[in-house]
Amino acid sequence: MSGPAPPAAPAGFSLNQQTVRQWSLPELAAGCAAAGVRRVGLWREPVREYGATAAARLVRDAGLTVTSLCRGGFLTAPDPAGRAAALADNRAAVEEAAVLGTDTLVLVSGGLPPGSRDLAGARERIADALAELGPFAAGHGVRLAIEPLHPMYAADRCVVSTLGQALDLAERFPARQVGVVVDTYHLWWDDTVAAQLVRAGESGRIAAFQLADWVTPLPEGVLLGRGQLGDGCVDLRWFRERVASAGYTGAAEVEIFNPALWAREGADVLAEVLDRYRHHVL
């Protein structure tokens, strides 16, 4: 005889795969089902290793919906060969997203090419790539979601640093082709973000909403410094309320890159995340 079903996770909650990176895809599916979680955000590397079609079947059989796939992007290469390779990789990412049944492909746009100081030129190359990729993605039922990253990543990872910059790019294209990601870890510091959220809502551009906290001191390397919900200085509830006021009705993905979490039992991490979400986001 089976036991009682687990209580459902809060409505709209999604667990991004990176928060419990220690779990394999089958462990992720089983762990989410055991915790009453019904939505997940996936990453391309483990999906490719498992096989996109097999991964789609796995999550579907576990009763899970894929809220986003991360990541495409890295579109700033100035040379023809680099540009062609980036476009091909992003087309493959779109196809993988479609197989998984998600309508959102998160883009990390790319940093400055080696030796370059031309931020404006790099952003224009992103726009050029979106002009080619947007119709292709829409034809697969997928929207490209530009994620602005904190300015500390501008040199090597993402020349799009603010929500305003992301919208400036996205609004060149139909909303069904290109939207934006609102990630609290990257945007909490920006005193223009409230107005930009209104702008994003008015044009229907919010494609994804992600949550992590900002804690100091940042670790060496900074990429893996995201904090557990409630451990830092981000007003997570404020973001959730403003995103909802802007008309966003999709999932809130908890995406935390943190080796201390990865060293723990995945089920314990997920239980803690759910508790923190209830106390600091809802």
Rank of each mutant, 00 (worst) to 15 (best):
L163K: 04
A212V: 00
A208D: 01
V182W: 01
D191F: 03
V198Q: 06
E202A: 12
R240K: 06
L197A: 02
A166Q: 07
V222E: 11
L236F: 08
G179E: 01
L236R: 05
R226I: 09
T184Q: 04
V222D: 14
D231E: 13
W214H: 15
L229G: 07
D191A: 12
W238C: 03
R176E: 15
W238I: 08
G232V: 10
I206F: 03
F173H: 12
A195V: 00
V222T: 15
R237H: 11
R205A: 09
G221R: 11
D183Y: 10
T192A: 15
L149D: 00
G164D: 13
T192R: 14
E171T: 15
L211G: 01
G204H: 09
S161I: 05
C233I: 15
C158L: 07
V178Q: 09
A195L: 04
R172N: 04
L218E: 13
Y153W: 15
A154R: 15
A194P: 00
S203K: 14
G232A: 12
G230D: 09
T192H: 13
R205G: 08
A145Q: 04
V234R: 02
T216M: 13
L223H: 10
R199T: 03
L223W: 14
V178G: 02
E202V: 04
A145C: 11
T192G: 07
Q165T: 12
G225M: 10
R242C: 01
L218I: 07
A195C: 01
L218F: 10
L144P: 05
W189G: 03
M152I: 13
G230A: 09
H150P: 05
V215A: 05
D156Y: 14
P219R: 07
E202Q: 13
L236D: 03
C233T: 14
T184R: 03
S203F: 09
E220N: 13
W189L: 09
Y153T: 13
Q228K: 10
R176D: 14
L223M: 11
G227W: 06
A170H: 11
R226S: 07
T192C: 02
R237I: 07
G230Y: 07
G230S: 04
L144H: 08
Q196D: 15
V193M: 00
R205M: 05
R205D: 02
V178R: 06
A212R: 06
R242E: 13
G204Q: 13
A170V: 12
A170K: 12
V181P: 00
G204V: 10
Y185I: 01
A194Q: 13
R205S: 08
R240Y: 06
R176W: 07
C158A: 14
D213W: 08
G225K: 11
L229V: 08
P174Y: 08
V193W: 00
S203Q: 14
L197T: 01
C233F: 03
S161A: 14
T162K: 00
L163A: 11
A195N: 02
L144M: 10
G164E: 13
A166E: 06
W238N: 09
L197S: 08
R240F: 01
R242V: 06
H186R: 09
Q196Y: 06
L211H: 05
W188N: 00
L163Q: 04
L218M: 12
F209V: 04
E147M: 06
A145D: 01
V215G: 06
C233K: 13
F239H: 03
V182T: 02
P217S: 01
G179L: 09
G221K: 10
A200H: 05
I206H: 00
